[in-house]
Design a binder for these strands. Structure first.
Lengths: 178, 178
DNA sequence: CAACGATTCGTACACTCGTACGCATGGGAT
DNA sequence: ATCCCATGCGTACGAGTGTACGAATCGTTG
């Protein structure tokens, strides 16, 4: 230890919290687990974040902004004349395999928001952020439906353990696009 | 107390567990909370369910079967010549308002399954059960997409606190039905 | 009616947790 | 150079938790 006067302490605690949430889920988040992961004493986490909810919110917000910055970049990279259904189906497939942990984490946030009011704005931001990214391409109503469909498909895959059927997803997305 | 030799003890414990889960969420389930709700001593719950996961699974399974028995009845009541999109949009609206707590509980199960393997089969059963109910009307692939869309829409509503837009939901379901 | 096994019940143990609090420390303002 | 206060640190407390276990109790079987 003996690492006193660390100007980035607060940020490192947030990063550690993200690591803990990623490994054990939101239910596994605790002051002590974060303190251990960040290699700081317990008192330090409670100093920077008076309550656990405060720390949770800070961590989730950071996760979230990183998430749809990334999602936004991916969607922007799609060529204007490309088949949107194909591209989105591919993107979802990628999220469900290469980025499986991240996807699980995202739905973990949803769950927590259902029951814990302080987390709800973050979950709402997440949904709205995705919708905003897609709206320029599809219009708002369709974008909302797309996000709903994609969330639902992802949940089905993650829960049933069934393999992702890219072609079926493409077909359904295409129908929704009209 | 002094209610010894209760042949339906086990069932009453499950019912109490359902009540606890409904009130506090799955995260709030504990042997003690269930024991209090069922008005039985702590040791009784641990006798009938050696581990907490065992009790959780028993409770969730009962919730689930009740759930899609109900859903199945509702779908069967839809007249063959009715507009399926309209009927489904209405049904979802009803679930999200009159049966809000039940819906929250259902998604609680989904998302718990993400992290806790023993719960996963139950969540998978739930998804598959819904799909089975809709398949005779729409075919399997469409039914899967419908369940995904409906799950996603419901999550959006429950998370953002936004009002349910029946007409928009109908339009999106109609598109998916092709 | 005796004995056995299935249940019931109370208690205890060994954790983990959130939070509070007092003291130590040293960077930066004066 | 000095003082102040944000920050760091360790510890303690009370509340919950899952689980284990032995003694009491009754239904049932022989």
């Amino acid at each position: 230890m003996a690492r006193r006067y660390d100007p980035e302490r607060r940020q490192r605690i947030i990063d550690a919290a993200i690591q803990v949430v990623g490994e054990r889920g939101i239910a596994g988040l605790s002051h002590r687990a974060v303190a251990a992961a960040a290699d700081v004493p317990l008192g330090s986490t409670t100093y920077h974040f008076a309550t656990l909810d405060e720390l949770l919110v800070a961590a989730l917000r950071q996760i979230n902004t990183a998430l749809f910055e990334d999602f936004g970049r991916r969607v922007e990279r799609i060529a204007p004349d490309a088949d949107l259904a194909v591209e989105l189906a591919d993107l979802v497939g990628e999220l469900l395999t290469d980025q499986r942990d991240r996807s699980v984490l995202e739905y973990d946030i949803y769950l927590t928001a259902l029951r814990r009011a302080p987390v709800r704005p973050i979950a709402a931001e997440s949904v709205d952020g995705m919708v905003d990214v897609l709206t320029p391409r599809t219009g708002r109503a369709t974008a909302q439906a797309l996000v709903a469909l994609i969330d639902g498909i992802s949940l089905q895959i993650l829960l049933t353990g069934r393999a992702y059927d890219r072609e079926q997803a493409r077909a359904m997305i295409a129908r929704l696009l009209g």
